[in-house]
Write a protein that binds this DNA or RNA. Structure first.
Lengths: 102, 102
DNA sequence: TTTATACATCAAGATATATTGATATATAAA
DNA sequence: TTTATATATCAATATATCTTGATGTATAAA
Protein backbone atom coordinates (compact mmCIF):
# COMPACT_ATOMS: atom_id res chain seq x y z
CA UNK A 1 0.00 0.00 0.00
CA UNK A 2 2.76 2.38 0.96
CA UNK A 3 4.52 1.96 -2.38
CA UNK A 4 1.28 2.34 -4.25
CA UNK A 5 0.46 5.60 -2.48
CA UNK A 6 3.98 6.80 -3.17
CA UNK A 7 3.40 6.11 -6.82
CA UNK A 8 0.00 7.75 -7.07
CA UNK A 9 1.04 10.82 -5.09
CA UNK A 10 4.10 11.20 -7.28
CA UNK A 11 1.80 11.27 -10.29
CA UNK A 12 -0.79 13.58 -8.79
CA UNK A 13 1.12 16.76 -9.53
CA UNK A 14 1.08 18.35 -12.96
CA UNK A 15 4.68 19.58 -12.81
CA UNK A 16 5.92 16.10 -12.00
CA UNK A 17 3.91 14.43 -14.73
CA UNK A 18 5.38 16.89 -17.20
CA UNK A 19 8.92 16.38 -15.99
CA UNK A 20 8.50 12.63 -16.14
CA UNK A 21 7.14 12.81 -19.67
CA UNK A 22 9.91 15.22 -20.62
CA UNK A 23 12.60 12.78 -19.53
CA UNK A 24 10.70 9.95 -21.16
CA UNK A 25 10.72 11.88 -24.43
CA UNK A 26 14.23 13.26 -24.33
CA UNK A 27 16.14 10.54 -22.54
CA UNK A 28 18.71 11.15 -19.83
CA UNK A 29 18.83 14.77 -18.66
CA UNK A 30 20.63 16.69 -15.98
CA UNK A 31 18.89 18.95 -13.50
CA UNK A 32 20.03 22.19 -15.06
CA UNK A 33 18.62 21.21 -18.47
CA UNK A 34 15.22 20.57 -16.95
CA UNK A 35 15.50 23.75 -14.91
CA UNK A 36 16.22 25.76 -18.05
CA UNK A 37 13.63 24.03 -20.22
CA UNK A 38 10.82 24.46 -17.71
CA UNK A 39 12.00 27.85 -16.51
CA UNK A 40 11.66 26.86 -12.86
CA UNK A 41 14.09 27.40 -10.05
CA UNK A 42 16.51 24.62 -9.31
CA UNK A 43 15.27 23.68 -5.86
CA UNK A 44 11.81 23.13 -7.23
CA UNK A 45 13.02 20.83 -10.01
CA UNK A 46 15.32 19.00 -7.64
CA UNK A 47 12.55 18.31 -5.21
CA UNK A 48 10.19 16.95 -7.86
CA UNK A 49 12.93 14.76 -9.27
CA UNK A 50 13.52 13.31 -5.83
CA UNK A 51 9.85 12.45 -5.47
CA UNK A 52 9.79 10.78 -8.88
CA UNK A 53 12.96 8.91 -8.04
CA UNK A 54 11.63 7.79 -4.66
CA UNK A 55 8.51 6.53 -6.38
CA UNK A 56 10.72 4.37 -8.56
CA UNK A 57 10.21 6.14 -11.87
CA UNK A 58 13.63 7.69 -12.20
CA UNK A 59 17.21 6.71 -11.94
CA UNK A 60 20.05 9.05 -11.11
CA UNK A 61 23.60 8.70 -12.17
CA UNK A 62 26.13 11.13 -10.85
CA UNK A 63 28.97 12.06 -13.18
CA UNK A 64 31.34 14.79 -12.16
CA UNK A 65 29.26 17.61 -10.79
CA UNK A 66 26.19 16.56 -12.74
CA UNK A 67 23.27 14.36 -11.81
CA UNK A 68 21.72 12.63 -14.80
CA UNK A 69 18.13 11.53 -14.44
CA UNK A 70 16.60 8.92 -16.69
CA UNK A 71 13.61 6.60 -16.72
CA UNK A 72 14.36 3.70 -14.42
CA UNK A 73 15.10 0.50 -16.30
CA UNK A 74 12.62 -2.35 -15.94
CA UNK A 75 9.69 -0.47 -14.50
CA UNK A 76 7.17 -2.74 -12.84
CA UNK A 77 3.91 -3.51 -14.60
CA UNK A 78 1.76 -0.76 -13.19
CA UNK A 79 4.51 1.84 -13.32
CA UNK A 80 5.08 1.06 -16.97
CA UNK A 81 1.34 1.28 -17.60
CA UNK A 82 1.27 4.68 -15.92
CA UNK A 83 4.12 5.92 -18.07
CA UNK A 84 2.31 4.70 -21.17
CA UNK A 85 -0.87 6.38 -20.04
CA UNK A 86 1.01 9.64 -19.58
CA UNK A 87 2.56 9.28 -23.02
CA UNK A 88 -0.93 8.93 -24.45
CA UNK A 89 -2.04 12.24 -22.94
CA UNK A 90 -0.16 14.22 -25.57
CA UNK A 91 1.04 16.81 -23.12
CA UNK A 92 2.55 19.93 -24.60
CA UNK A 93 6.17 19.92 -23.48
CA UNK A 94 8.71 22.72 -23.53
CA UNK A 95 11.56 22.58 -26.01
CA UNK A 96 14.71 21.08 -24.56
CA UNK A 97 17.15 23.79 -23.58
CA UNK A 98 20.61 23.07 -22.32
CA UNK A 99 21.08 24.86 -19.02
CA UNK A 100 24.57 23.92 -17.95
CA UNK A 101 27.18 26.59 -18.48
CA UNK A 102 30.10 24.27 -18.89
CA UNK B 1 -4.06 15.79 -18.12
CA UNK B 2 -6.86 17.03 -15.90
CA UNK B 3 -8.60 13.65 -15.88
CA UNK B 4 -5.34 11.87 -15.23
CA UNK B 5 -4.55 14.07 -12.23
CA UNK B 6 -8.09 13.54 -10.97
CA UNK B 7 -7.48 9.83 -11.15
CA UNK B 8 -4.08 9.85 -9.47
CA UNK B 9 -5.16 12.21 -6.70
CA UNK B 10 -8.21 10.08 -6.05
CA UNK B 11 -5.90 7.11 -5.55
CA UNK B 12 -3.34 8.93 -3.45
CA UNK B 13 -5.26 8.61 -0.21
CA UNK B 14 -5.21 5.42 1.83
CA UNK B 15 -8.81 5.70 2.99
CA UNK B 16 -10.03 6.04 -0.57
CA UNK B 17 -7.99 3.13 -1.84
CA UNK B 18 -9.45 0.99 0.94
CA UNK B 19 -13.00 2.11 0.24
CA UNK B 20 -12.55 1.43 -3.46
CA UNK B 21 -11.18 -2.02 -2.80
CA UNK B 22 -13.95 -2.66 -0.31
CA UNK B 23 -16.61 -1.92 -2.87
CA UNK B 24 -14.70 -3.92 -5.45
CA UNK B 25 -14.71 -6.90 -3.09
CA UNK B 26 -18.23 -6.63 -1.76
CA UNK B 27 -20.11 -5.21 -4.71
CA UNK B 28 -22.71 -2.50 -4.46
CA UNK B 29 -22.87 -0.86 -1.05
CA UNK B 30 -24.70 2.05 0.48
CA UNK B 31 -22.98 4.80 2.42
CA UNK B 32 -24.14 3.67 5.84
CA UNK B 33 -22.72 0.18 5.30
CA UNK B 34 -19.31 1.63 4.49
CA UNK B 35 -19.62 4.05 7.38
CA UNK B 36 -20.35 1.21 9.77
CA UNK B 37 -17.72 -1.13 8.35
CA UNK B 38 -14.95 1.45 8.47
CA UNK B 39 -16.17 3.07 11.67
CA UNK B 40 -15.85 6.55 10.21
CA UNK B 41 -18.31 9.39 10.37
CA UNK B 42 -20.73 9.72 7.50
CA UNK B 43 -19.51 13.03 6.11
CA UNK B 44 -16.03 11.64 5.73
CA UNK B 45 -17.20 8.57 3.82
CA UNK B 46 -19.53 10.63 1.70
CA UNK B 47 -16.77 12.99 0.70
CA UNK B 48 -14.38 10.22 -0.29
CA UNK B 49 -17.08 8.49 -2.29
CA UNK B 50 -17.71 11.69 -4.18
CA UNK B 51 -14.03 11.98 -5.07
CA UNK B 52 -13.91 8.38 -6.27
CA UNK B 53 -17.08 8.92 -8.25
CA UNK B 54 -15.77 12.13 -9.81
CA UNK B 55 -12.61 10.29 -10.81
CA UNK B 56 -14.80 7.82 -12.67
CA UNK B 57 -14.28 4.78 -10.46
CA UNK B 58 -17.68 4.63 -8.90
CA UNK B 59 -21.25 4.72 -9.93
CA UNK B 60 -24.11 5.85 -7.73
CA UNK B 61 -27.64 4.72 -7.95
CA UNK B 62 -30.19 6.31 -5.74
CA UNK B 63 -33.01 4.11 -4.53
CA UNK B 64 -35.39 5.46 -1.97
CA UNK B 65 -33.34 7.21 0.68
CA UNK B 66 -30.23 5.18 -0.11
CA UNK B 67 -27.34 5.83 -2.41
CA UNK B 68 -25.77 2.65 -3.69
CA UNK B 69 -22.18 2.90 -4.81
CA UNK B 70 -20.62 0.34 -7.10
CA UNK B 71 -17.61 0.02 -9.38
CA UNK B 72 -18.38 1.89 -12.56
CA UNK B 73 -19.09 -0.42 -15.48
CA UNK B 74 -16.58 -0.41 -18.33
CA UNK B 75 -13.66 1.29 -16.66
CA UNK B 76 -11.13 2.64 -19.13
CA UNK B 77 -7.85 0.82 -19.62
CA UNK B 78 -5.74 2.61 -17.06
CA UNK B 79 -8.53 2.80 -14.51
CA UNK B 80 -9.06 -0.91 -14.80
CA UNK B 81 -5.33 -1.47 -14.46
CA UNK B 82 -5.28 0.65 -11.32
CA UNK B 83 -8.13 -1.33 -9.82
CA UNK B 84 -6.30 -4.55 -10.60
CA UNK B 85 -3.13 -3.19 -9.06
CA UNK B 86 -5.03 -2.31 -5.92
CA UNK B 87 -6.55 -5.77 -5.81
CA UNK B 88 -3.05 -7.21 -5.95
CA UNK B 89 -1.97 -5.26 -2.86
CA UNK B 90 -3.84 -7.60 -0.55
CA UNK B 91 -5.08 -4.85 1.67
CA UNK B 92 -6.60 -5.90 4.95
CA UNK B 93 -10.21 -4.83 4.75
CA UNK B 94 -12.79 -4.54 7.53
CA UNK B 95 -15.61 -7.03 7.70
CA UNK B 96 -18.76 -5.83 6.00
CA UNK B 97 -21.22 -4.51 8.55
CA UNK B 98 -24.70 -3.39 7.67
CA UNK B 99 -25.17 0.10 9.00
CA UNK B 100 -28.67 1.00 7.92
CA UNK B 101 -31.31 0.81 10.61
CA UNK B 102 -34.16 0.02 8.31
C1' DT C 1 43.62 27.72 -2.32
C1' DT C 2 39.96 30.46 -4.28
C1' DT C 3 36.07 30.68 -7.08
C1' DA C 4 32.22 29.10 -9.92
C1' DT C 5 29.04 25.52 -11.17
C1' DA C 6 25.73 21.72 -10.22
C1' DC C 7 22.87 19.84 -7.15
C1' DA C 8 20.52 18.84 -2.57
C1' DT C 9 18.24 20.23 1.46
C1' DC C 10 16.19 23.27 4.85
C1' DA C 11 13.00 26.74 6.75
C1' DA C 12 9.22 29.79 5.90
C1' DG C 13 5.15 30.95 3.84
C1' DA C 14 1.42 29.82 0.52
C1' DT C 15 -1.78 26.64 -1.11
C1' DA C 16 -4.33 22.41 -1.13
C1' DT C 17 -6.51 18.50 1.07
C1' DA C 18 -8.58 15.92 4.97
C1' DT C 19 -11.36 15.64 9.08
C1' DT C 20 -14.93 17.00 11.98
C1' DG C 21 -19.35 18.79 13.60
C1' DA C 22 -23.27 21.25 12.12
C1' DT C 23 -26.75 21.86 8.96
C1' DA C 24 -29.59 20.94 4.74
C1' DT C 25 -32.37 17.95 1.72
C1' DA C 26 -34.93 14.00 0.46
C1' DT C 27 -37.51 9.93 1.48
C1' DA C 28 -40.73 7.39 3.83
C1' DA C 29 -42.64 5.57 8.10
C1' DA C 30 -45.66 6.80 12.01
C1' DT D 1 -48.08 16.54 9.21
C1' DT D 2 -44.40 15.07 12.29
C1' DT D 3 -40.47 12.39 12.93
C1' DA D 4 -36.58 9.44 11.89
C1' DT D 5 -33.32 7.78 8.53
C1' DA D 6 -29.95 8.29 4.69
C1' DT D 7 -27.09 11.16 2.38
C1' DA D 8 -24.81 15.54 0.89
C1' DT D 9 -22.61 19.74 1.75
C1' DC D 10 -20.73 23.61 4.40
C1' DA D 11 -17.53 26.00 7.63
C1' DA D 12 -13.78 25.56 10.69
C1' DT D 13 -9.75 23.49 11.81
C1' DA D 14 -5.92 20.34 11.23
C1' DT D 15 -2.66 18.40 8.30
C1' DA D 16 -0.05 17.80 4.19
C1' DT D 17 2.10 19.50 0.04
C1' DC D 18 4.22 22.98 -2.99
C1' DT D 19 7.08 26.95 -3.86
C1' DT D 20 10.64 29.97 -2.84
C1' DG D 21 14.99 31.80 -1.12
C1' DA D 22 18.85 30.66 1.62
C1' DT D 23 22.32 27.64 2.76
C1' DG D 24 25.24 23.43 2.41
C1' DT D 25 28.12 20.02 -0.17
C1' DA D 26 30.76 18.28 -3.97
C1' DT D 27 33.39 18.88 -8.06
C1' DA D 28 36.60 20.97 -10.87
C1' DA D 29 38.41 25.01 -13.22
C1' DA D 30 41.34 29.12 -12.44
Amino acid sequence: MHDFLNLTSALSDETRVKILRFIDSNGELCVCDIEKSFNMIQSRISRHLKILKDAGFLNVERRGRWAYYSIAPSLKGFQAAALKEIASLEIKLPKLQKGCRL
